[in-house]
Computed example of a mutant assay.
Amino acid sequence: MSQAVTWLVADDHPLFRQAIMESLKPAFPDVEWLEAENVEQLERRLNMPQEIELLLLDLKIPGAHGFSTLIHMRSHYPDLPVVIVSAYEDLDTIQRAIQSGASGFIPKSLSAKAMVAAVQTVLDGGISVPDKGTLKPKGHDADDMVEKVASLTPQQYRILMMFAEGLLNKQIAPELEVSEATVKAHATAIFKKLGVTNRTQAVIALSHLDLDKETTGFEH
Rank of each mutant, 00 (worst) to 15 (best):
E175R: 15
S179Y: 08
E175F: 13
L176C: 09
V9K: 10
A87E: 07
V31L: 04
I20G: 00
M162Y: 13
P81A: 07
S2W: 03
P81R: 15
E180Y: 04
L160D: 05
T182D: 01
A114T: 00
I204L: 10
T121M: 06
I127M: 07
Q18K: 12
K213E: 02
K60Q: 14
D90H: 15
K213F: 08
A19W: 04
A114L: 03
T182R: 12
P14W: 12
G66A: 13
S151K: 14
A19I: 00
G63I: 01
S109Q: 12
D124G: 05
P137K: 09
P130V: 02
D131E: 06
L194Y: 11
D143F: 14
V183I: 14
G133T: 01
M162I: 02
D92C: 03
A112I: 00
K193G: 02
E147I: 14
V82G: 00
T121C: 09
S86V: 03
A36L: 05
P130H: 07
F67Y: 15
G125K: 13
A164M: 04
F163N: 05
V119S: 00
L80G: 00
T153F: 08
I106L: 10
V5A: 06
P49E: 05
L57E: 01
T197A: 11
E175Q: 15
R96K: 14
I190C: 11
G63N: 05
A202Q: 08
K148A: 10
L56V: 05
T182Y: 14
K213R: 14
A19C: 02
D11N: 14
I172G: 04
S86W: 08
M161D: 02
K213D: 03
M115K: 00
I61S: 05
R45P: 00
E177P: 02
V122C: 07
S100A: 15
H72R: 08
L8V: 00
L91V: 05
L176P: 09
V178Q: 10
K148Y: 09
T188C: 09
D210A: 15
T134R: 14
S151L: 11
M1R: 13
L57W: 06
D144P: 02
D210W: 08
V178K: 14
A64M: 08
L56A: 02
F191T: 02
I84R: 13
D141Q: 13
V183Y: 07
P107G: 04
S111F: 11
F218D: 05
E147Y: 09
V178F: 10
S111M: 12
L56M: 08
A102I: 08
S86L: 06
V149W: 11
F191I: 01
I98N: 12
R74E: 02
P154L: 05
E147G: 08
Q171L: 06
R74S: 02
K113Y: 03
T69M: 10
